[in-house]
């Protein structure tokens, strides 16, 4: 199937009557996923959004339930958002990140209804990356600029139009309902060419990384590797696969809400015990946890690396702590960064 770029706004407008539609919109110098009221608000050529798509499913701040408590009992209301959604213009790395987060919010024992209900009610329409940025390394972590994992539909930008490739049944249905024209052989060939030419030039060699991390928890390398890190939350909040959160009460007396907020393993209070003891008392332990979590613990638990190579942490770290360099340092050789 194929849809011309000119038709996208009206296609989105039609979707808006049936779904909550989210798409990247311009906010100053960057784009963010926002619910749109008009198809023309979507900015589809702005590269990856500043904040990852996770914020739609796992918002930075979310009310878990409200309560009204008296001595007779407690009235709890937990509004689980089950509105039908379409997220339009997701990049493949972000879509893949959701499949990783699914492991966490749907683990061997518990299900998170807030996240999972949104996931189940959302159709993800992706746009492949014709010109991956120099900070992208998706192909080094099992992804790719046209990877379809997690997506329902994939759009391939062929210049004036998008070639539409259904991935799931949900996506196929959406595309059929939209009545997109059939793609000609020439269109398909154009899409294939685009895919072929989209080269992720940056490779991060992860061979042997896991084996190193399996044994190097006490290695002196950790004494130095974190040294410039400021211990802020920028990399974790911007990371599509980071999922840590805090739960707080926002209340006046006994009427209020329980809220969850993004939290970060970079913060000292994250792990401070009630007794005052802190198992990760310095930035060294905290930075090590960030790396270990993504490249060892997550692999041990779910057989996947918890990094999709989106490059957000690289571009946004205030001190240029580059995860590619850190990983190379850990592997014990020089980084190979093509730029």
């Amino acid at each position: 199937m194929i849809v011309s770029k000119k038709e996208i706004p009206s296609f989105l407008d039609k979707l808006i009557s049936d779904y909550q539609v989210f798409a990247p919109v311009q906010k100053g110098s960057y784009t963010l996923f926002k619910q749109i009221c008009s198809g023309t608000d979507a900015v589809l050529d702005g590269g990856i959004t500043k904040l990852p798509v996770k914020e739609i499913f796992f918002p930075q701040s979310e009310k878990l339930f409200s309560y009204n408590v008296t001595n007779e009992g407690a009235k709890l209301e937990a509004p689980v958002d089950d509105r039908k959604k379409v997220v339009f213009g997701v990049r493949p790395c972000d879509a893949r990140s959701l499949t990783l987060l699914d492991n966490v919010f749907n683990n061997d024992k518990y299900q998170d209804p807030y996240y999972l209900t949104r996931r189940n009610n959302t159709i993800l329409v992706g746009i492949g990356c014709n010109s991956p940025a120099s900070t992208c390394f998706c192909t080094s972590v099992n992804g790719g600029p046209f990877d379809t994992k997690g997506l329902d539909l994939l759009l391939v930008d062929t210049g004036d139009a998008y070639v539409v490739e259904p991935v799931s049944d949900k996506g196929k249905e959406l595309a059929e309902k939209a009545g997109f024209a059939a793609a000609s052989d020439a269109d398909k060939a154009a899409a294939a060419k685009v895919k072929e030419e989209a080269v992720v030039s940056c490779r991060v060699n992860t061979d042997g990384l896991k084996a190193k991390l399996d044994v190097n928890f006490y290695d002196p390398i950790w004494d130095r590797i974190h040294e410039k890190c400021l211990g802020c939350g920028a990399c974790t909040y911007l990371c599509p696969t980071c999922h840590c959160f805090d739960i707080v009460d926002d209340a006046v007396d006994c009427n209020g809400c329980r809220v969850r907020n993004w939290d970060s393993c970079a913060f000292p209070l994250f792990t401070l015990h009630g007794s005052g003891h802190n198992p990760r008392s310095t930035n060294k332990e905290r930075y090590r946890n960030r790396i270990m979590h993504k490249f060892k613990y997550f692999v041990d638990n779910f057989n996947e690396i918890a990094c999709v190579g989106c490059g957000r942490c690289i571009k946004n770290c205030p001190v240029n702590m580059d995860i590619r360099v850190v990983l190379e340092d850990i592997r014990g050789s020089e980084a190979r960064l093509d730029s």
């Binding site: 919010f105 024992k109 518990y110 999922h243 959160f245 805090d246 792990t271 946890n289 979590h293």
Partner: peptide
Amino acid sequence: RMKCGIGMCGRCNVGG
């Protein structure tokens, strides 16, 4: 230290 108690909030890990 714990918050969620259900393996999601990330703070109580010892290794994996």
